[in-house]
Structure formats: structure tokens, C-alpha cells
Design a protein around this nucleic acid. Structure first.
Lengths: 233, 233
DNA sequence: GTTCGTCAAGAGCAGTGCTCTCTTTTGTTC
DNA sequence: GAACAAAAGAGAGCACTGCTCTTGACGAAC
């Protein structure tokens, strides 16, 4: 259908893409709060008011960048997962961890926009959700595959009893982790939030002056995390 | 020595405190990027330029708020820990978890300022460090106490081998967790980053539409986390 | 009692998001 | 091909920001 686009629609799509490209470059340099519509317009050689023909507000431009970011990290995670034999569940977990970390280190400001504190006053619209869960879908599939293959042997089966309300929440999470029992859901959530918690500490400076070989520590920590999830080391 | 302060010094200290109070209120409402020196000045009935007599820049005011925030959460954690019998290491861990979460829920914007993405262009000065580690000091003492009391029985001793560089990093972390072997250091870091990772997911919206009973899920997850740390359930 | 350092105030600069109006360009229809 | 409508760009302007500079006024020390 792209051939059915009028010339005007094509140039509009092209300009929209160029705006987000320029904006993403500015985001990479100055961070989210340094993103300026006027600066984008200046760099593109057009009047600042013209940008509003393409993005009704700064927040809308930010939303576009956020969706792009989620898709970028999601794609990186998908590729990393696909490069490992499906039955090597531990390897897939480590591949996903490193894919997220590599992407985060390469795009720290974008990572902060996605997984850091939300921009105050900014409310993420619902259409970011599909892109936002792409990485989680991959992760859920790994856990699910490992469980169905009988490859999950959590080291300790005496988990504290879950509260009644957790069963409903677990059911919702199970949509991303099919066929998995509640206790594995908990371990899965802990490992997943643990990955991003560690990355946040690393990227946001909490490890400063304490952990120097960040790459090695991350790899080791995620490997241990895999063990508590029940994945083979 | 406070009696030796001149009247001018006293009123200066008082005004400085009032500025941070007003700024903290604005921070709580609008978030970090909504903090405006001019608005603070307006609310205090003084000229915007006068604020600069007390804080040379907006970042310096932000730094003051950050230090206050770290101290607030640190104090909350200290009090929570002190309210539990010292030999109840599992109870102390859960008390610390809930103290951090309660404080975060009561001051979401301040929490985001401390543990979320750093304000772009803002470089935390070194004098935030003592306040920033108050909660970590408490946590390290709990792990250390539990280990020395022989109360730590990690469920799985077959931890993957640590890389050589990790020994040096572990030695630095051990300053906050005395007498603890390397493998417990790893577990300790994983649990600590896991706490904040979970809280970030909860506070920054990643759990939206998935986990509804957030309080129950948090309690359960941290209880499970305690088990993998080796603390009694 | 004069001098000197501190403080508040005001104006001003460069920048921001956003809106409004006006003109130009473009695509469609007769 | 001319006429018209829709879309897009340009520019001025509003209210706001952080920050600087200058000008006065006040209080404390000598």
C-alpha cells in the first residue's frame, strides 16, 4: 500500500522520521529534559512552529521516542534470544541479560527514559504497551520453555506461602509465561526485576566507587540469579 | 556553638531551611523537572534573584533536596531496623524492605529523584555519598549479623564460580558487610538491587495492569528473596 | 559614626513550550 | 487548465524558565 501514498503523505512520513531521528540524537546527548522542540526545528532549518504540524506537543514527540526505544531494546533481546539454541535455557537467559545491558550502555539516556523515573507530568499512553512488553515476552517464553522442558529445578522448594490475592495477579502474569505454576511466576518476576534493578544501580551511579569491574560483576550476578530461578548454571 | 551564631547567621540558616521546605513541597507536587526557583521565590514573597544568595544554582538546591531525601529514607530504615529484635534477621530484612517501600509510596517524586534516572546534566557531588549509603549500612549490618550468627543457610551452595576481578570488588562491598564471604556478598547485592528493582517496577508503572495487589505481591516477593539470601522465612 | 560586607530587588538576556495569524504550497475537482 | 480546499511553513507573541548584573538598603564591626 505504500505505493498508494500521495507525494505529500510520503514527504510527511519522511519528515516525521527525520524529526524523531534528530530528536533521538539530542536525547542521546542531553537527556530527556534537554530535548527541545525549538532545537530540533533549528537543526532541521524550519520554524519551531512547524514542528507542531507533526507532533502536537513535546510529550507526543517523547512518546514516539519511547516507543522506538522499547522496540529497539525489544528487537535486541529477540535477536539475542534467537541466536542461542532453544533448548539452552540458561544460555538464552544470559543472552537476554547481556542484550539488555549492552543496549542500555550504548543508549544510556534512552534507557533512563524507558526504565528510569517517568518524566514528571508525563503520562505514558496505552499504545506504548505493545512495544514495552516485547522484551518481557521473550523472557516469559524462556521461563515457560524451560519449565515445560522440565529444565527448571529451583534449589529450594520451601517457598513461603503466597497470599490469596497473588493467585489472580499470577494468572495475569501467566499470559506472558504460559503453563507455569505460581511459585515459578514469583521467581520469574524476582529475576526480571532483579536484572533491571542491577542495571539501574550500575547505570544510575549507585555502584560508583564500589564495583569497578561492572561487566564481570553483572555477568556473575545474573548467572547466580539464573540458579535461584532454577535454570542450569 | 549555636549561641555564638550572629543574628544574621541565624536568619540565614532559617531562610535556607524555609527555601528547601518550599522546594520539597513543590518537588512532591510537580516532580524534579517542575521545581522552579522562581516559583519558590514567589511562594516566599521574595525576588527570584534573592534565592541565589542561598543556592548558587538550581542544581545546588536539588543537591540539598537529594541529601535530605537520602537522610529521610536512611532514618526510616534505621528506625524500622531498630524496632525488630536484633537476632530476628529475617524480620529485620522485611522491616527494611517495608520501610523503603512505605517511604517511597509516601514520597514518590523524591524516591524517583534518589533511585530513578539521574537528572540529565546533573552530577551528584561527592558529599551526597554519606547520606546515600545510610540505608545500605543498615542492610549490610543485617546480612553481617546474620552471617556471624550462623543464621544464613543459602538453599543452594553450588554457586557458579566468581570471576577473579570480583574479589576486589567484593572486598570494597565488605566494608558495609563485614566478615562475609564472597558468595554471600553476591547474594546480598542481588537481594538489595532486587528490592529497588521491584520498587522501581511498581512505582514507575511497569507493573500496571498486571499486578494489582501490589502490597501483597511485594511482601511475598521480598519474603522469597530472603530465602534465596539464606535468611529464615 | 563611618566603613564594609551582606542581602534584597529589579531589569535584562537567552532560552523554552505553545498558540495564533498569515502566507505559500499542494492536491483535487469542475 | 482554472478554482477551490486542505495542508504546511513562517513569524510574531505570550508566559514561563535559569541566571547575571547593577543598584540600593540594612546591620555589624572598627
Amino acid at each position: 500500500m505504500s505505493s498508494s501514498l500521495t507525494a505529500r503523505e510520503r514527504v510527511r512520513a519522511e519528515l516525521t522520521r527525520e524529526i524523531t531521528d534528530v530528536a533521538r540524537r539530542q536525547l542521546a546527548v542531553d537527556g530527556a529534559s534537554g530535548l527541545s522542540l525549538r532545537a530540533v526545528a533549528r537543526e532541521m532549518g524550519m520554524a519551531s512552529s512547524a514542528i507542531y504540524r507533526y507532533f502536537p506537543s513535546r510529550d507526543d514527540l517523547l512518546t514516539a521516542l519511547i516507543i522506538d526505544g522499547y522496540n529497539a531494546v525489544g528487537e535486541a533481546v529477540e535477536n539475542a534470544d534467537a541466536a542461542v539454541p532453544p533448548e539452552d535455557h540458561g544460555g538464552r537467559w544470559m543472552a537476554v541479560c547481556h542484550a539488555v545491558r549492552d543496549w542500555a550502555l550504548a543508549h544510556p539516556h534512552e534507557y533512563a527514559l524507558l526504565y528510569g523515573s517517568p518524566v514528571p507530568g508525563y503520562r505514558a499512553p496505552q499504545d506504548t504497551v505493545p512495544a514495552a512488553v516485547r522484551d518481557t515476552v521473550v523472557y516469559g517464553r524462556i521461563v515457560s520453555d524451560a519449565h515445560r522442558a522440565g529444565a527448571l529445578n529451583p534449589p529450594d522448594t520451601t517457598q513461603p506461602p503466597a497470599p490469596p490475592s497473588f493467585h489472580e495477579d499470577a494468572a495475569r502474569v501467566r499470559e506472558l509465561m504460559p503453563d507455569v505454576p505460581d511459585d515459578v511466576i514469583v521467581r520469574g518476576l524476582i529475576a526480571w526485576t532483579g536484572l533491571f534493578g542491577w542495571l539501574n544501580f550500575e547505570l544510575f551511579g549507585q555502584f560508583n566507587n564500589a564495583i569497578l569491574d561492572l561487566a564481570a560483576a553483572f555477568d556473575h550476578a545474573m548467572r547466580c540469579q539464573a540458579r535461584t530461578l532454577g535454570l542450569p548454571a
